[in-house]
């Protein structure tokens, strides 16, 4: 959970060059493939209710522990529930928790990082708080939160957001520190811009690239985090079909229904792999230093 992302080299990137960067991402076949898979999974997750051949909680005692077949592409579990339907809904949960927790940590972390980078007096306070958060491995943090809030989808989202918070704060802070020293900021000050205007109009827009890269790295981390929490029983609870929950409940059935553990895991890997491929492409496209190599 503490992956550190290299920051793009100091360049002022206008929105136009960001569009160009997106075109560069799409020219990179691996990144483009990643994006396609992400979009397909997003669509499948959003349309899970329409696409799923069965309701995810439909129990069928006549068809328990069926291996994958034409009727049940991903097989059925010990209650005869269709695994394809459950994986589709599980992906939806993964996407919701993954994206929401990153959004939450951006909403809280970016302002904190901007303040820490901009006001020298606030910096030690915010940095020390960040370090304190980092002192608790995210899972321990999540465990603590689950103990306080009780396990649920919301708990998982909040716990992951708190876990990601230090990363976001650090990136926002270091970008602000870097940008604060740049000429165009000095020019804006000379033009009489106040602090809020500086942060909002000059610093934040130029920090977006680094934050975007960090956020794309954070989403797959959060998705894996959700799976872990739910697997441990600290996140999403049955009957909501989280992929982590599915893997956990497949554990006792290892010998009789190995597909129950294999398929949801493969689903997670496909999704996170696609997100990571896209994230890598995005970082390369936004980071001129990587391009030179």
């Amino acid at each position: 959970m503490t992956t550190v992302v290299e920051l793009p080299t100091p360049t002022v990137v206008a929105p136009r060059s960001r569009r160009r960067a997106l075109r560069r991402v799409l020219r990179n076949p691996l990144a483009a493939a990643g994006l396609v898979v992400v979009v397909v999974v997003l669509a499948a997750a959003a349309l899970a209710d329409l696409l799923a051949p069965y309701p995810f909680d439909l129990v069928d005692f006549d068809a328990t522990l069926q291996p994958p077949s034409l009727a049940h592409w991903f097989g059925t579990d010990e209650l005869g529930r269709d695994q394809l339907s459950r994986v589709l809904h599980g992906l939806r949960v993964s996407m919701i928790v993954g994206v929401m927790s990153v959004v939450l940590s951006l909403v809280v972390g970016v302002p904190l990082g901007l303040l820490a980078g901009f006001y020298r007096l606030l910096d030690p306070v915010i940095s020390r708080l960040t370090d304190t958060l980092l002192a608790f491995p995210f899972l321990v943090l999540a465990v603590g939160l689950a103990a306080i809030l009780g396990p649920s989808l919301t708990t998982a989202t909040v716990a992951l957001a708190v876990g990601l918070l230090p990363l976001i704060i650090r990136v926002a802070r270091s970008e602000t520190l870097r940008l604060r020293e740049m000429d165009f900021v000095a020019a804006a000050v000379a033009d009489g811009a106040d602090d809020l205007e500086l942060l909002r109009r000059h610093i934040l827009p130029n920090a977006v690239n680094a934050l975007l890269v960090q956020a794309t790295v954070a989403v797959p981390l959060a998705i894996i985090g959700e799976a872990i929490l739910s697997f441990l029983g600290l996140g999403v609870r049955p009957p909501i079909p989280s992929l982590g929950v599915m893997i956990a409940s497949a554990q006792p059935l290892f010998r009789d229904g190995p597909w129950l553990a294999v398929i949801p895991g493969v689903a997670i890997v496909v999704l996170t792999l696609a997100l990571n491929l896209f994230g890598d492409g995005l970082r390369d496209a936004l980071d001129p230093r990587e391009l030179r190599r």
Partner: peptide, 22 residues
């Protein structure tokens, strides 16, 4: 490296058990 980053280790652990223990 990409696979290492993308595979949740709890699932990798279960798969390892599935293969090397079962």
């Amino acid at each position: 490296a990409l696979l290492g980053l993308s595979i949740p280790n709890f699932w990798l652990g279960l798969m390892a058990i599935l293969v090397f223990a079962i």
